[in-house]
Every structure is written in C-alpha cells, then in structure tokens.
C-alpha cells in the first residue's frame, strides 16, 4: 500500500480528509495507533467534538475543491457522548450522500460510519478499505477548477 502511495505521490498525492468525533472514533484511531495497526497514509484527520457538529457543507466543500475522499466517523448509534448527536449526523449525512451526485460529485468519495474507542481493528479496516476505494476512483477533479 505504502509503495503504491509514493508512486502515486509523484503524479498527485491522494488526499482524504476524515472528520472524527472526539469521544469514540478519534479514540478508535488512537487505539489503532497504539496497537500499531498499519494503515494507508492518505488520511488527514480533523477532530470534531461530535458527529452532530458535522456540517454537511464541510464534506461538500472538501469534495468541491478537490479533496479525493471524505470519511466521517462517530460513536455507534445510542452510544453518543452527547446522547443524540450521531443520530442527527446519520440523517444529515445520509441525505448528503444521496445529494452529492446531483452536484456532480461521485457519491463513492464520501463515506460515514461508526467506530468506537475500543475498535482499533475496525478503524484499520475502515481506513484501508476507504483508501483502496479512493485509489481505485483516482484523483477527484473537483468542481471549482473545471
């Protein structure tokens, strides 16, 4: 995987942005790190307090300007640190997913999921699979520059 990255980097490095809630998924990513679960290096993580804080426009804007993939992850439904934040997020992000194609963006570049602070292995799997998917899709042309 890492080899593939450096080859691609010469052309144009794939960049994926991840919005992770502070309580579960950010912790899950930390757990994966502590356990040394190797992952592709394309992902850049932004820490947000809760997926409920996730404005769908953050994802839309990233994709419009040519970020290659957006991954959002929070606590499992019912386990939200703020009780219901992720339930709101689920509705908003599901709508966003269906809306992206209408904006001319490949919906597969966006993914949202739930990973708890103890699920390091699941995080590794999530990142690996999503990175693979984005690598297959190739660089995102974005909308603003076309």
């Amino acid at each position: 995987m890492t080899e593939g990255n450096s080859v691609l980097a010469k052309a144009r490095e794939i960049k994926i942005i991840g919005f992770l809630c502070n309580w579960c998924s950010y912790g899950g990513a930390d757990t994966a790190g502590v356990c040394r679960f190797k992952q592709p290096t394309d992902l850049r993580i932004v820490r947000i307090p809760c997926t409920g804080r996730m404005d769908p426009l953050f994802a839309a804007k990233s994709l419009i300007y040519g970020i290659d993939g957006v991954l959002v992850s929070g606590c499992h439904p019912k386990d939200c640190h703020y009780a219901v934040g992720n339930l709101y997020a689920r509705r908003r992000l599901e709508v966003l997913k269906h809306f992206l194609p209408f904006m001319g963006i490949d919906g597969r570049r966006f993914h949202y999921t739930w990973v708890s602070a103890s699920e390091g292995q699941l995080w590794q799997k999530t990142v690996t699979e999503f990175s693979d998917r984005i690598h297959r899709l190739g660089p995102n042309p974005g909308l603003s520059r076309t």
Binding site: N5, D30, G33, R36, K38, R44
Partner: peptide, 24 residues
C-alpha cells in the same frame, strides 16, 4: 497535531509519513 498515533505508529514509509505530518 497528532503525529504519533495517527502517523508514525501506523505507517512505515518515512517519506509519506513526513508529508502527512507536515500536513497535520
């Protein structure tokens, strides 16, 4: 910027890691 759990511990490619750390 979390360059240990999210960078150095999860990737072995020094060059890619350094780029990622710079980004973060």
């Amino acid at each position: 910027a979390n360059i240990r759990e999210h960078v150095s511990w999860i990737g072995l490619d020094r060059e890619a890691n350094t780029r990622k750390a710079c980004d973060l």
